[in-house]
Simulated scan of single mutants.
Amino acid sequence: MSKFVTLNNGAVIPSVGLGVYLTTAEDASRIVYESLKAGYRHIDSAVFYENEEAVTGAIAKWLKETGTDRKEIFYTTKILKFGDEAKPEIEKCLEKSKSIGYIDLILIHAPLANSEGRHGAWVALQDAVASGKVKSIGVSNYGAHHLKQLLEYPDLKVKPVVNQLEIHPWLARKELVKYCRDNGIEVQAFSPLVRGYRFGDEDVVALSKKYNVSEAQIMIRWSLQNGFIPLPKTVSETRLVSNLDVFDWSLSKEDMALLDAKDEHFVSMPEWDPSTNPLD
């Protein structure tokens, strides 16, 4: 199992990242710094999280203290502005990340606009890539219908490198995942730990005992073995370490099938469900 994934534009992204959703700026500053010490090299933030400056500040502090090359860190943020409002939103993101020089990946956080608005946002993101200040662009919470429309833009110059979705054993989104992969788009899995709602599941508990790992590690490893890029969130320094300790062991084919069979379209965050967002 590789610790890195190569995106469709040739960029390389670490295959496990730290999510900082619902993390205060104070906690984000601490946990991001500690995550880098623990070996994380991929941090996922967003304008909506209101912690971008804390995240990039922690990255900058760690880079300076360790002398590590900026290229070793992959930083993601997301915008929720569309049309003519997208460009100034991107500029704000760049301003908040000036301590680290550039942004590795910006996503459209969700398709919460009409077709014209989404198109305008994508054009603005393409311009940001052309400027060199943003290395890659993608989307989040996009359904196949949104992706199809995007890929058919007459002025499409840059394909999305990822689609970030809620993905876990109870929400596998097989058809959408297949569509992404058929079009060379990697799938990032947010809420890979189901926001804690499925801790205590008897099969997951049994597997954690069998492999002598945590329930969270079982879920993260399931995500990796399915080819996703999981983004587990924690504010616990102890769990930071264990959540990343998922590369030197693997789930058996039978145990993967056991977890695969749990798919019941359980959406823990329905407000971000792409199937509920029409094209217009």
Results as ranks from 00 to 15, higher is better:
residue 208 S to C: 12
residue 29 S to N: 14
residue 128 A to K: 06
residue 131 S to A: 03
residue 47 V to Q: 15
residue 97 S to D: 07
residue 123 V to E: 13
residue 60 A to L: 08
residue 152 E to N: 11
residue 224 L to E: 10
residue 8 N to A: 01
residue 231 L to H: 01
residue 88 P to C: 08
residue 29 S to C: 00
residue 279 L to C: 11
residue 145 H to L: 03
residue 226 N to E: 13
residue 181 R to E: 09
residue 211 Y to F: 11
residue 94 L to Y: 04
residue 109 H to E: 02
residue 10 G to V: 06
residue 233 K to R: 14
residue 52 E to M: 09
residue 71 K to N: 14
residue 242 S to K: 05
residue 160 P to G: 00
residue 100 I to Y: 03
residue 192 P to K: 15
residue 40 Y to T: 03
residue 262 K to I: 00
residue 99 S to C: 11
residue 194 V to I: 10
residue 233 K to L: 12
residue 53 E to R: 04
residue 9 N to A: 09
residue 265 H to T: 14
residue 204 V to N: 01
residue 80 L to S: 14
residue 8 N to L: 04
residue 154 P to S: 01
residue 200 G to L: 00
residue 131 S to E: 07
residue 74 F to Y: 02
residue 276 T to S: 11
residue 1 M to S: 14
residue 37 K to C: 05
residue 224 L to N: 06
residue 121 A to T: 05
residue 246 V to R: 09
residue 194 V to N: 05
residue 186 E to I: 08
residue 89 E to K: 10
residue 176 L to Y: 00
residue 246 V to Q: 03
residue 48 F to V: 02
residue 67 G to S: 08
residue 48 F to M: 12
residue 135 K to E: 08
residue 214 S to Q: 06
residue 105 L to Q: 04
residue 121 A to E: 05
residue 246 V to T: 01
residue 219 M to F: 08
residue 68 T to G: 10
residue 100 I to W: 01
residue 220 I to R: 06
residue 211 Y to M: 06
residue 116 E to W: 13
residue 73 I to V: 10
residue 15 S to A: 12
residue 98 K to M: 02
residue 232 P to N: 12
residue 265 H to R: 15
residue 175 E to F: 15
residue 134 V to C: 07
residue 107 L to H: 12
residue 220 I to N: 03
residue 100 I to K: 08
residue 176 L to G: 04
residue 132 G to W: 13
residue 261 A to W: 09
residue 57 G to T: 09
residue 92 K to W: 14
residue 80 L to T: 13
residue 63 L to M: 10
residue 99 S to D: 02
residue 245 D to W: 08
residue 218 I to F: 12
residue 176 L to P: 04
residue 260 D to G: 05
residue 272 W to G: 02
residue 21 Y to G: 03
residue 58 A to H: 01
residue 75 Y to L: 05
residue 246 V to F: 12
residue 275 S to Y: 14
residue 137 I to Y: 10
residue 44 D to L: 13
residue 50 E to H: 13
residue 262 K to H: 01
residue 47 V to Y: 14
residue 45 S to I: 05
residue 208 S to H: 02
residue 134 V to Q: 02
residue 92 K to F: 14
residue 178 K to C: 07
residue 169 P to G: 09
residue 90 I to W: 03
residue 8 N to S: 09
residue 1 M to K: 10
residue 9 N to H: 11
residue 246 V to D: 08
residue 235 V to Y: 02
residue 145 H to A: 02
residue 15 S to I: 11
residue 99 S to V: 09
residue 80 L to D: 15
residue 115 S to V: 14
residue 35 S to A: 12
residue 100 I to V: 09
residue 208 S to L: 01
residue 152 E to Q: 07
residue 47 V to G: 15
residue 5 V to M: 08
residue 240 L to W: 09
residue 155 D to M: 05
residue 12 V to D: 14
residue 229 I to C: 13
residue 200 G to Q: 07
residue 258 L to S: 03
residue 271 E to F: 14
residue 87 K to S: 04
residue 91 E to V: 05
residue 156 L to S: 01
residue 143 G to S: 06
residue 202 E to R: 02
residue 159 K to Y: 14
residue 261 A to C: 01
residue 237 E to C: 15
residue 73 I to D: 06
residue 151 L to Q: 06
residue 5 V to K: 13
residue 91 E to H: 00
residue 80 L to H: 15
